[in-house]
Design a protein around this nucleic acid. Structure first.
Lengths: 305, 305
DNA sequence: GTTCGCCATACCGATTTCGTATGGGCGAGT
DNA sequence: ACTCGCCCATACGAAATCGGTATGGCGAAC
């Protein structure tokens, strides 16, 4: 059963005449006659009764006509959707994220992507970093957002944004009275470090540059855990600016002023050999993204005026 | 887009290998490779990624696979239904009935037909007899049940059943005390005739045979109207046995005993040139129908013991 | 009775489709 | 490292299919 024959049949049924249908289909009458015949033969059913003025649908033909419209429409819909999937306008996209990346641009970036790609389903995989690299290399996810990533031969990265460091302070801490924190203010301050190297590597550089050893009182699993500890009064923490999106009781954020340029990066990682058009679409979206949001985040923070 | 190609695609996707799929499809590998290629070309989309151990669906291929199953199933369902329609196992059947025929075997016959042909929709057209003959000749109905039909060149009839005559009496009529009525009991009896010739022709023969002119006090449109008049006390009426199915207050039915064989027939009429398989099915059902029901109807009639 | 329109058939060239044979690429096993 | 096996892709000839023109049969209309 060829769909072309089905369309020939539909036109013939509409015209109630093989000759006129052939005209509409831009072919001559004999081939169309044979198409109808072979369709009838294939189904083992008479579809038309031949009259002196043309043809007329039998009951079986009427039944076929109803289905033919549906089937034809169904196929066209399917081809349309497949083309959309192939061009990256529809489908499913699996993305890994880790901890604090969720506080950053992820929601904005992905909702921007969703707006231009409404038929793409985005599935986030919020798992530990090692698992994510595995998943990425095995193709279980298409890409991942992470702050720090080791160099890997088949993985490429693009920087999504850079953020300055802020200090999270408990409200009882006298430093929270200052509008901004200098690096020397932290010399005796009990600090909360995080296990993930994303921020701590940057901090370590900073401290060695200013020649002092920080007083680390806790180790947190990720940035969010670190902030919760600040809220509990265990100490202060150095965090990227996007932490302002996380509001916790008794926590006050203050910008960190440093001599050297000390910024925290967020990267998007993907396989170099991946050919999915969805990746192209997503990369295009990532590259064109500007991290405008920070200003409003700062403005909305109650501790800042 | 050929459906055969769609099935080839489905098998290939299931086997994740063109070679194995070709084996399952009883063709060799190169044609199948080309089928996949031309399908991809037709859609303008890569459906499989070729690996060293076989092929793997792309996202577009996965999307097609979902639709392919539906489309294939849809087509098979359609062909199945079309074959059923063509063989008279499904479809629609338009039948004309007239007045009292509805009291007779119609419900039983048609429900018997429905039981063996559950997918045939039966549409009854309860219209005056002249309109029915028109509708029958113009093909708007497939057949008609009527008691009396004029001879027409292109119309064939089969007798569905024969019924004896009964007399409908008002309960106050002294004749209703008798278990049965003789023809001579009706000589002075006021009678209700019906306009439709179905019964009255038979009655007229009966009366001429017994040499008397009946006392006709009313003319009813059909048998049901005649019975209603009996119920109203306007007189008595001669009616076919199936009228026992119609229960009206104050009406008592008694069998009519005659010298000559006087039976009322019910016919099924159809076009001689009609080729619909549904007609064949219906005719088969009509011919095999035995009018067993009358005995139980008589037994259930309260006036009889 | 003639003509006209329609469907069906016959036949022919172009295209497509299937088969066999073969080449290239990758992984496994020796 | 090399061979072998397996897979997909391609080349090419035979068969089938599809589209065209020419023509015949049939019924309706004039």
């Amino acid at each position: 059963m060829d769909v072309r024959r089905l369309k020939y049949f539909i036109v013939t049924a509409e015209e109630r005449s093989i000759s006129r249908a052939a005209e509409r289909l831009h072919i001559t009458q004999p081939p169309l006659t044979r198409h109808i015949q072979s369709l009838e033969e294939e189904l083992g059913v008479l579809l038309f009764t031949r009259t002196s003025w043309g043809v007329e649908l039998t009951q079986a033909g009427t039944a076929l006509l109803k289905h033919a419209h549906n089937i034809s429409a169904h196929i066209e819909l399917a081809t349309e959707q497949i083309r959309r999937v192939a061009s990256g306008q529809a489908g499913r996209i699996d993305i890994g994220v880790f901890g604090s990346a969720m506080l950053n641009i992820i929601p904005k970036l992905l909702s921007a992507f969703s707006a231009t790609h409404p038929d793409v389903r985005i599935v986030l995989h919020n798992t530990p970093k090692e698992k994510q690299i595995n998943a990425l290399q095995q193709g279980r996810i298409l890409g991942a957002f992470d702050r720090y990533l080791p160099e890997l031969p088949n993985i490429a990265t693009v920087r999504v944004c850079r953020e300055p460091l802020w200090v999270a302070l408990h409200c009882d801490n006298p430093l929270s009275r200052q509008p901004r924190i200098g690096i020397d203010d932290l010399r005796k301050e009990p600090l909360i470090d995080e296990q993930d190297p994303s921020v701590s590597i940057a901090c370590r550089e900073l401290f060695t540059h200013h020649h002092f050893e920080p007083v680390v009182v806790q180790k947190a699993a990720d940035l969010i855990a670190a902030t919760i500890m600040v809220s509990g009064g265990f100490g202060s923490a150095l965090l990227p600016e996007s932490i302002l999106n996380l509001r916790l009781p008794n926590v006050i954020y203050r910008p960190l002023v440093t001599d050297i340029d000390c910024m925290i990066d967020l990267h998007f990682a993907y396989r170099k050999d991946e050919e999915s058009p969805l990746l192209d679409e997503l990369l295009y979206c990532v590259r064109n993204y500007r991290h405008h949001a920070t200003e409003s985040e700062v403005a909305n923070h109650p501790g800042e005026e």
